[in-house]
């Protein structure tokens, strides 16, 4: 039973980390442009200037 008391909260913790990750992806706007992101991965040459990834 004691192993259960350890494992059950642990599994909930892991799930919470997943939930937190989802919250982060949502907040950082990763679902705002699914079409663009799907295309961007196919673009071969990286943009010339690193700050072009902002905005």
């Amino acid at each position: 039973m004691s192993i259960f008391m350890l494992l059950a909260p642990l599994s909930v913790m892991i799930a919470l980390v997943g939930l937190g990750a989802f919250w982060w992806t949502l907040r950082s706007g990763q679902y705002d442009d699914p079409m663009g992101d799907a295309s961007r991965i196919l673009i071969e040459d990286p943009l010339d200037r690193p700050d072009a990834r902002e905005a």
């Binding site: 705002d32 442009d33 699914p34 079409m35 663009g36 295309s39 961007r40 196919l42 673009i43 040459d45 943009l47 010339d48 200037r49 700050d51 072009a52 990834r53 902002e54 905005a55």
Partner: peptide
């Protein structure tokens, strides 16, 4: 509407001297 348009537009516009960044949202 496509990856090629996206890369062309972002590259060309970012290359302009007065522009500091350009980002196209393909969905909207």
């Amino acid at each position: 509407r496509c990856a090629a348009c996206l890369s062309k537009i972002e590259r060309e516009i970012t290359a302009m001297p007065s522009v500091s960044s350009a980002r196209l949202n393909l969905t909207t």
